Deep mutational scan, measured.
Amino acid sequence: MQIFVKTLTGKTITLEVEPSDTIENVKAKIQDKEGIPPDQQRLIFAGKQLEDGRTLSDYNIQKESTSHLVLR
């Protein structure tokens, strides 16, 4: 499924993911596309910070959901 990640600069990154993917996996995909190390990434969805060990389905992130990327 596709999800979108919006950066603070207003850029939207499109990612191909599975509901069973962990947040860690998603951060690795963002690193592949954008070159941002996962330890600098914070992903926010529905006002919550997403934890590495959880999956997209844990957070009820469905296709075409948009989460926000904040850099630390």
Rank of each mutant, 00 (worst) to 15 (best):
N60L: 05
S65K: 07
T12Y: 11
T12K: 07
T9C: 14
E24D: 07
D52H: 06
L43A: 00
V5S: 00
S57H: 09
K27A: 01
F4Y: 13
T9P: 04
Q31C: 11
G47S: 04
T14P: 06
L15G: 00
E24G: 13
I36R: 02
H68R: 07
Q49M: 13
Q2G: 04
I36E: 02
F4P: 03
Q2P: 06
L71M: 08
S65N: 09
P38V: 15
I13M: 05
T9Y: 14
F45V: 03
D39R: 10
I36W: 13
I44Y: 15
Y59W: 02
L15C: 02
Q62S: 14
K63C: 07
D58C: 03
H68L: 15
I23C: 01
L8K: 11
Q40C: 10
P37C: 07
D39W: 13
L56N: 00
R54Y: 13
D39H: 12
H68V: 14
V17I: 05
G35C: 05
Q41F: 14
V17M: 04
Q40K: 11
K63H: 15
P38I: 15
G47C: 07
D39F: 11
T22I: 04
V70A: 06
E18W: 12
Y59L: 06
T9S: 13
S57W: 09
I13R: 01
K29Y: 07
K29R: 07
G53T: 10
G47F: 04
V70W: 12
D32A: 14
I23W: 02
E24H: 11
P37R: 09
V70N: 05
K63L: 11
R54G: 05
D52R: 03
Q31G: 06
D58A: 05
R72D: 12
N25R: 14
A28G: 09
I3G: 00
V5P: 00
N25A: 14
V70Y: 14
A46M: 15
T22W: 05
K27M: 07
V17G: 02
M1G: 03
T12S: 06
F45W: 10
H68Y: 15
R72I: 15
A46G: 12
N60T: 04
R72W: 15
K48L: 11
L56D: 01
P37K: 07
R72H: 14
T9F: 12
L71R: 05
K48D: 06
H68N: 08
K6H: 15
E64D: 14
M1E: 02
L43E: 01
T12V: 14
T9D: 13
E24C: 07
Q49W: 14
S67W: 15
I3Q: 00
P19G: 07
Q41R: 01
P19D: 07
Y59A: 02
E64I: 12
R42I: 15
Q62H: 13
F45D: 01
Q41Y: 14
L56Q: 00
L8N: 12
V5I: 14
E51N: 06
V70S: 07
S20F: 11
R72N: 11
D21P: 00
E64H: 14
T7Y: 12
I13L: 09
I36P: 03
V26D: 00
Q31S: 11
T14C: 11
A46R: 14
I30E: 00
R54E: 05
R54L: 11
Q40L: 11
L8P: 15
T7W: 09
T14G: 05
N25G: 08
D39Y: 12
S67I: 15
E34A: 11
D39M: 08
I36V: 07
S65Q: 09
S57Y: 09
G53H: 15
I44C: 13
I36T: 07
P19V: 07
K63F: 11
K29D: 02
T22K: 08
K48H: 11
E64R: 04
R54H: 11
T22G: 03
Q49S: 09
T55K: 11
S67P: 15
N60Q: 08
K27P: 00
M1S: 03
P19F: 07
G10M: 04
T12C: 12
E16P: 04
D58E: 10
K6Q: 11
Q62T: 15
E24W: 15
T12A: 04
V17T: 03
S20C: 09
Y59E: 02
T66H: 14
M1C: 05
A28C: 08
G35H: 07
F45C: 04
Q62N: 14
L56C: 01
G10N: 06
T22Q: 04
T7R: 06
R42L: 15
L50C: 05
D21E: 09
G10D: 04
T9Q: 11
A46W: 09
K63V: 09
L43V: 04
M1F: 15
I36S: 04
N25L: 12
I3L: 10
I3F: 05
T12I: 15
K11D: 07
Q40V: 10
K33T: 08
H68C: 13
I36K: 02
M1V: 06
G35S: 05
L50M: 12
K27R: 05
V17F: 03
L15I: 11
K63A: 15
S57P: 02
L71Q: 07
Y59H: 03
V5D: 01
K27S: 01
P19S: 09
I44P: 00
L15A: 01
L69G: 02
I61C: 02
G35D: 05
Q49V: 15
S20D: 12
G35Q: 05
P37E: 07
M1Q: 04
S57I: 08
T14H: 07
P19C: 06
I13F: 09
G47R: 03
L69D: 01
V17D: 00
I44N: 05
S65D: 09
I3D: 00
D32N: 11
E18T: 14
E64Y: 14
R42P: 01
K27T: 01
S65T: 12
R54M: 13
I61K: 01
G35F: 04
T22D: 03
S20Y: 11
I13N: 01
S67L: 15
N25D: 12
V70E: 14
I23N: 01
K33D: 03
E64M: 12
G47V: 02
M1N: 03
I44Q: 07
V17W: 02
Q49E: 15
E64V: 07
L50D: 00
